[in-house]
């Protein structure tokens, strides 16, 4: 069964008088355990696609099915629930809470679900260890490098054991070497633990090793 399916999805943004078509009929299926890169120029619709995949936005027409449920049909709270249970997010700007330590940031994902603190702490520490930050548990984000911050974010996305991790240009704010190491880390997690990744980038060089690349151009998928 597919974790994620897009059926003829379009997305329009209304900007005053004009309408911007960010997605123009997208069909896409993501199976369990896949590692997919969405490649496209800036403004091609990558973020829109990932937002829809993560149930943080609704399509204008068409259907987005996440774990076989029509996302548009869910209430706000049900979507939150779905995200908390099944989806992990990694952001371009890392989006860590500045007042929390690395460990607390990772724990947060679990605590949103209502996990007990002790359990959350243990799991979070383990995940941070996995992404190579065992020595940085108690560092606040401002004491970490960009690459380290993104590793914390990966641990945060990973810790709830989601079906799907969405990463919108996770490397756009990193230098090339660090960016590559982040992609490699994601790939390693995909191979070792079978975590499904859907990430976007505009950088060709990063996807040489990626098996499945979805190219998007002006809101359309160009296979």
């Amino acid at each position: 069964m597919n974790i994620l399916e897009f059926h003829e999805v379009t997305k329009d943004y209304r900007l005053g008088e004009t309408t911007v078509s960010a997605l123009r009929g997208v069909d896409l299926a993501v199976g369990e355990g896949e590692f997919i890169a969405v490649l496209g120029a800036s403004g091609s619709g990558k973020s829109t696609l990932l937002n829809l995949a993560g149930a943080i936005d609704d399509p204008t027409t068409g259907e987005v099915r996440i774990r076989d449920r029509d996302a548009a049909g869910l209430t706000d709270n049900e979507k939150a629930e779905l995200r908390s249970r099944s989806i992990g997010f990694i952001f371009q700007n890392f989006n860590l809470l500045s007042v929390l330590t690395a460990l607390e940031n990772v724990m947060l994902s679990l605590q949103i679900r209502g996990s007990r603190t002790a359990i959350a702490r243990q799991e979070a520490a383990q995940r941070l260890d996995e992404v190579g930050l065992a020595d940085y548990l108690h560092h606040r984000p401002d004491k970490l490098s960009g690459g380290q911050r993104q590793r914390v974010a990966i641990a945060r996305a990973l810790v709830t054991r989601p079906s799907l991790i969405l990463a919108d240009e996770p490397t756009a704010n990193l230098d090339h070497v660090t960016a590559q190491s982040i992609i490699d880390l994601m790939k390693e997690l995909n191979e070792k633990e079978g975590v499904t990744f859907l990430f976007s980038t505009h950088d060709q060089r990063l996807i040489s090793e990626v098996k499945r690349v979805v190219r998007i151009d002006d809101g359309r998928i160009a296979q």
């Binding site: 943080i56 709270n77 995200r83 952001f91 989006n95 809470l97 947060l108």
Partner: peptide
């Protein structure tokens, strides 16, 4: 604002 967006993306409900 961005922190709020992040928390909600992680599954925090409006109420929370």
């Amino acid at each position: 604002t961005r922190e709020i967006g992040t928390l909600r993306a992680l599954g925090l409900k409006r109420r929370s």
